[in-house]
Amino acid sequence: MTYLSLPDFDELRALAEAAAASAGRVIGEHLGDRRTLHLKSSPSDPVTELDKRSEAEILWLLDRSRPDDGILSEESPRKPSVSGVRWVVDALDGTVNHLYGIAHCAVSIAAEVDDGHGWTAVAGVVHDQIRAETFSASRGGGAALNGRPLRVNEPVPLSQALVATEFSYAAASRSRQVEVLRRVLPGARDIRCTGSSALDLCWTAAGRFDAFYEDELQRWDWAAGRLILEEAGGRTAHLGTGVLGAGPALYHELAPILGIA
């Protein structure tokens, strides 16, 4: 895979880190703020004032540094790319946790390039302001937590695996996802649902979980975290509109259970 006339991937990573840290300060100062602006996919899927403020901070910094890049973000209209680079932004992953004052939420930013076949993530940052943890990766450059290299747990059999998953906000989808969980849970050590898919992917990269899967996500939910997990030695695959990620051995065990060929 060759990218011509594009910036260094580590430069994109550094810009994502700066933007995520700036937005993270907004989030950290207002944990538990329940000012809701509107609902998205269902009555349980809110957008808060903090989502909008955090995203505005990110987009301002990205536009100031790289005005020709595209933007794909959760709360703003899509901006087309002139440069061949676009940013995929989730300014507050874990909004419901944040509303309730649960200290488990993050800023997620990925930089993608158009390689002629589609968009591919080349830099990613997931910043947890409350724990002062920044997960980051650049394609081919490895993954790190606060500068320390990350590696997935490997090998781990499903019988000894702590598996993370999340659920859709749509009732019909939740019913279907419970049936998938019925296939996974009996064979696993245990299951966790934290409310932040971006952190689930990063925690899998860090060995705090052994795998993560969810089949209904938006690209901004997984773009950065998936790259971080891959650069930490994990294997990933599309799962519906979401993703499966785990160490290679566990991936091969989980993939057929989840219907991945």
Rank of each mutant, 00 (worst) to 15 (best):
I102R: 12
A121I: 04
R64T: 09
H104D: 12
A164V: 11
L99Y: 06
V85I: 13
P77C: 02
A110C: 12
N97S: 10
Q160L: 14
H117M: 14
P149G: 08
C105N: 15
A164D: 08
E133K: 12
A144H: 14
A110D: 09
C105F: 15
H127F: 10
D128L: 01
V85A: 01
I102K: 11
A144S: 15
K79V: 11
V125I: 11
D93P: 09
L62C: 02
V163N: 02
V122Y: 03
G147I: 09
R64E: 12
T120A: 14
Q160N: 14
D63W: 10
L92R: 07
G84P: 00
C105K: 10
S159R: 11
P157D: 00
A111W: 05
I130Y: 02
T165Q: 12
Y100M: 08
L99A: 03
N146L: 05
V126E: 02
Y100W: 08
E166A: 14
R86W: 07
S65C: 13
A91M: 13
Q129D: 15
A103Q: 09
N97V: 08
S76C: 11
A132W: 11
R148S: 15
T165F: 12
A132G: 13
E112H: 04
V152H: 01
T165V: 14
R64F: 06
G142M: 10
D68H: 08
D114N: 15
V88T: 07
E154G: 00
L72A: 09
W119G: 07
E112V: 04
S138I: 06
D93K: 09
R139S: 11
G70C: 03
S76Q: 09
S76I: 08
A111H: 05
R148T: 14
L99Q: 06
A110I: 06
A143Q: 04
I130R: 03
A103R: 10
V107H: 15
I102M: 11
G116R: 08
L145F: 08
N146Y: 12
G118P: 03
A121K: 00
L62T: 00
W87K: 01
V163E: 02
A132N: 15
R86Y: 09
A103W: 06
L62P: 00
I102W: 05
G70H: 01
Q160Y: 15
T165D: 13
I102V: 13
N153K: 10
V82K: 11
V152Q: 00
S108M: 11
V88M: 03
S76E: 11
V156T: 02
H117A: 15
G101Q: 05
S138T: 12
A103G: 09
V96Y: 14
R131H: 11
K79T: 08
V88K: 00
G142C: 12
